[in-house]
Amino acid sequence: MKPRLSTLIRHLLALTIAATFLLPLAWTLAASLRPAGLPPPRGFEFLHWPPSFENYSRIFEILPFARYAFNSLLVALAGVLLTLLTASWAGFGMSLLGRRAQIRLLILSIFLQMIPFTALWLSRFLFFARLGLTNSYYAMLAPALMGTSPLFILLFYWTFRRIDRAVFESASLDGANLFQTWMRIALPLARPALMAVGLLAFLFYWNDFISPLLYLRSQTLYTLPVGMLQLQEMDRTNWPLLMAAAVLVTAPAVIVFAALQHSVLWWESE
C-alpha cells in the first residue's frame, strides 16, 4: 500500500507542476476566445462560453498579418537551413582537430555563448548600417553565418567526436574528400543533433523580437513579433484581440517544439 500512495502523491505533484507551467499559455488562449465588444469579465472567468474565433480573423483585417507570418516563416526557414550548414561544418571541423586545439575552441565557444546580444546590439547596428544592410533580412540572419549560437556548434562537435575517426579515415581512403565525408558519413550519423539544432534555431529566428525591432523600418518586411507590437500600440486594451495575436505568434513555435522536443529534452539519454 505504501509505495502506491507515494506514487499517487508524486503524480499529483507532477500534474500540479505541469498545470502551473501550462497556465500562462492556457490563460492567453482562453482570453483570445472571448467575443469582441464584450466588456471585460468581472470576477474570475476562465473561458467565456460560447467561445468565438472572430478575433483571429479581425487581426488579418487590421494589419497585414498574413504578410508578417510569411516573412517570419521565410526568416526562420532561411535561418534554420543556414545554421544547420554552418554549425555542422564547424562542429565537424572541430572534431577533426588535434586535442589541444579542440579544448581551446571549446573554451572559446563557451565564452562566446555567454555574451548576450544586448551587450553588442548597438555597435552591430552601426556596423550593419554602415554596410547598408539594415532594413533587410541580412542583418537579422547574420548570426547564421557563425552557426547562430556556439552551443549549436558544440552539439555537433560532441556528436561527431564520438564517431570513430577510423570511419572518416576509411572514407578518405576510398577517395572521398572531406566535404563528401561530411555530407555522406558525418551528417547521417548526426540525426539527433540535426533535430535539436533545427528546433533551437527555428525558435531563435521565429521568436526574435529585438533584431527586427532594431533593423527593420519598412512595414512590408515586418515579422510577426513586431507586427504584434504594432497591434499593441494601436489598441492597448483590446485584450481578446491582443491575446489572439499572441497565440498566433506562439502556435508555430509550440508546434515545432512538440514535434522535435524529444531531441532536446532527452538529448543523449537513449
Partner: peptide, 12 residues
Amino acid sequence: AVTLPTVIPEAA
C-alpha cells in the same frame, strides 16, 4: 510542459 513557457516567443 515545464519547458513550454521557454518556447513561447518573448514578445508574445
